[in-house]
């Protein structure tokens, strides 16, 4: 079943009254349930805009966007907020956790905006479950400043997962992390994908793309290549190959 269907999407940014910047030019894309797609491309290729459109943070200027069969291109801002909350989980390059707020409270956040209104007890239960899923239940009351980059990103993943979304959108999820921690994140992603979550990841690192099942290369607002990954890597194996350095572990802290 197709989770994301994009048909002939155009998106142009108007800078001032004169300058128009076309970010997406007639892009079409179908993503099936259970896919793990990496979107690659140089900066300015439109991959961030594509993420924003898929993530319902932005509406396409022209074209059709079906998310699980629902046409979301014409939804109001409030309906889009509900769609983001219910169906989409975001993971950002800079983690985007709320500072001076415990890991648990960060993970609780999307549940608080749920339209069907859970009780605080239920919210806390689900949030600790999600933290448990990324192996951070022992850090629930730590603030982001007390966590390493990798741990922060795992909290962000728990936050994205806590609403049980249809798709997980990751924007350069390893961009701020060292190799080992990046591999740990990929390991989590592969595991989640194995459990059936549809993953879309924007990255400019070719290597990271090899952990996905499909790579989509963009240039100038269009898709120029779209291939299945033949020599797919398992993040857990790659991690094994890294030299074990205690110092490296600590430098992360």
């Amino acid at each position: 079943m197709a989770v994301v269907v994009l048909e002939d999407i155009f998106k142009t940014y108007h800078l001032g009254s004169e300058v128009d910047v076309p970010a997406l030019r007639g892009l079409s894309l179908v993503l099936e349930a259970g896919e793990f797609a990496a979107i690659l491309g140089p900066s300015g290729s439109g991959k961030s805009t594509l993420m924003n459109v898929i993530g319902c943070l932005d509406r396409p200027g022209r074209g059709r966007y079906l998310l699980e069969g629902e046409d979301v291109a014409k939804l109001s801002r409030d309906r889009l907020a509900a769609v983001r909350n219910r169906k989409i989980g975001f993971v950002f390059q800079s983690f985007n956790l709320l500072s001076r707020t415990s890991a648990l409270e960060n993970v609780e956040l999307p549940l608080m905006y749920k339209s069907d209104g859970l009780s605080l007890r239920e919210i806390q239960r689900r949030a600790s479950e999600a933290l448990d899923q990324v192996g951070l239940s022992d850090r629930a009351d730590h603030h982001p400043s007390q966590l390493s980059g990798g741990q922060q990103q795992r909290v962000a993943i728990a936050r994205a997962l806590v609403t049980e979304p249809t798709i997980l959108l990751a924007d350069e999820p390893t961009g701020n992390l060292d190799t080992r921690t990046g591999l740990e994140i990929m390991e989590i992603f592969q595991k989640l994908n194995d459990h059936g979550i549809t993953l879309i990841m924007v990255t400019h690192e070719q290597d990271i793309g090899r952990f996905a099942k499909r790579t989509i290369v963009m240039r100038d607002g269009r898709i120029v290549r779209d291939d299945p990954v033949e020599d797919r890597l398992a993040a857990s194996d790659e991690k094994e190959k890294l030299p074990v350095l205690v110092a490296e572990e600590e430098s992360v802290q």
């Binding site: 907020a81 985007n96 956040l109 749920k114």
Partner: peptide
Amino acid sequence: GIRIALGARN
């Protein structure tokens, strides 16, 4: 921005 991305309405 984070709150809006996570589903907060205006």
